[in-house]
Computed example of a mutant assay.
Amino acid sequence: MKKIVGIFVLLFCLNACDDGDFNIESFDFADAATNSCNNGESGFFIYKINDNEALILQIPEDSFKNEITPAETPRTIDINSINKVFYRLYNGTLSANVICNTIPPATPTVSNEWNALSGIIEISTFVNKQVNETTNASEITGYTHTIVLRNVNFDTGNGNQQLFTELAFGDYVTSSLRQGNFNVNIAKCGNNNSFLFKIPTIGTSTPANIPPQALTLSIDPSLFVPEVTPVNEPRTALLNGSSNLLKLIYYNGIISNEFLCLTEPPIFPSAIEEFISNNGVAGESGIIEVTTTIEYEIPTDNLSPIIGHRHKIALKNVTMTKSFPVLPIQVNFNFGNVYEFGEFVILL
């Protein structure tokens, strides 16, 4: 922290002009959180608050794409009359209500403002994952956008200017689409055992980042032999991108079992994001296991008549890679050591 302040002081000595009572040593937002206003609307901007100071970036919201940037190759945005950077000093302590309010409160008020005349905004994007240390399952939770301002030249007022060759704004985090609760029964299209799917319940209170979605499994139906498998000896196959393929698909509208069973789905709802399973490697990853038992009528005992066979599907070490939209750098997650896809009964 002392080094950062020291750099600012040095820059001030090299570039300083008369800026009134402003103290360059207080220009420190390293520990401040990044927040935003007007998400999904015009006038979007992000900001950082340090007591009575605010650093504001007003740039298009889609500047923060949920796409990993290549190493040493950030996105760049020129600072101009559309892409703006402000520094403001207020005469009182700030809050989000002050910054985001379309009708500014009476207090605090701006006592000093710097407007950036030129410079470049650099944005480097990284994926965030939440990992279950027990199961090794991971989920993409969002993206971190690290922002650096380079060669930014501020108009400090009264014809004076202040140049920063490098100013670390900090991180801004955007959320990603999240998985719903797939702890639901397997569904099929009639008697078709080669295409299985699960649709989690989506209600009016479901968060916006958990959209309608489906987990689908195209699977070789020969795995469902009407014979009991020996203990600890399931039938196995590998995910292969065709006859055995797992997909996680997010949609822009409510879907149903009937929708997924249509041979020619309508234009709406349509997929907004899709992940597909990586091909399996024998003994290592992308493994399908099917365990078969006998299904009896209720109550289930040895005297009850057999009505069919219950097939339980487990997926081992399955990695899912985003296939749509196509990205320059792949994004993936893992369903963990063992993922219980579910079970269903094939009647005699």
Rank of each mutant, 00 (worst) to 15 (best):
G336Y: 01
I24F: 02
P60Q: 11
A282E: 15
S285A: 07
I267N: 15
I254S: 12
E233V: 07
D301N: 15
N151Q: 03
Y47C: 12
L167T: 06
P108H: 02
E72P: 07
E41K: 15
P105H: 06
E295S: 05
L238Q: 02
P74F: 05
K129V: 14
I82K: 15
T204L: 15
N279C: 13
T141S: 07
I288N: 05
I24C: 07
N257G: 12
I120A: 07
N240T: 11
F275D: 04
E264L: 09
L238F: 09
K198Q: 09
T109P: 02
N209T: 01
Y251M: 03
S111Y: 01
F335W: 10
N35Q: 15
Y250K: 00
I254P: 09
N232H: 08
D78N: 15
V110P: 02
N52S: 14
G342C: 00
L260K: 04
R178F: 00
I82R: 14
G280Y: 02
K312I: 09
I329C: 08
S26T: 13
N101V: 03
T141Q: 06
E139I: 05
A54R: 03
Y339T: 05
F195P: 01
E133F: 04
F344I: 02
K3N: 13
L245I: 04
D78K: 14
I329N: 08
T204H: 08
G6P: 01
N15G: 15
I254H: 04
T229I: 04
V5S: 08
G308I: 05
D51E: 15
S285Y: 14
N52W: 08
N50H: 14
F344H: 01
S26K: 14
S111D: 11
F64P: 08
T321E: 03
L57E: 02
V326Q: 15
L14F: 07
E166R: 11
H145S: 03
L10N: 14
N136T: 12
P221S: 11
T263H: 11
N153V: 08
F164S: 01
N97H: 07
P200R: 04
Y296N: 12
N278G: 10
V231I: 14
A271W: 03
L348N: 15
V110E: 08
E113V: 11
S26M: 02
E284P: 02
L217E: 12
Y90M: 08
I56T: 04
F275N: 03
L55I: 15
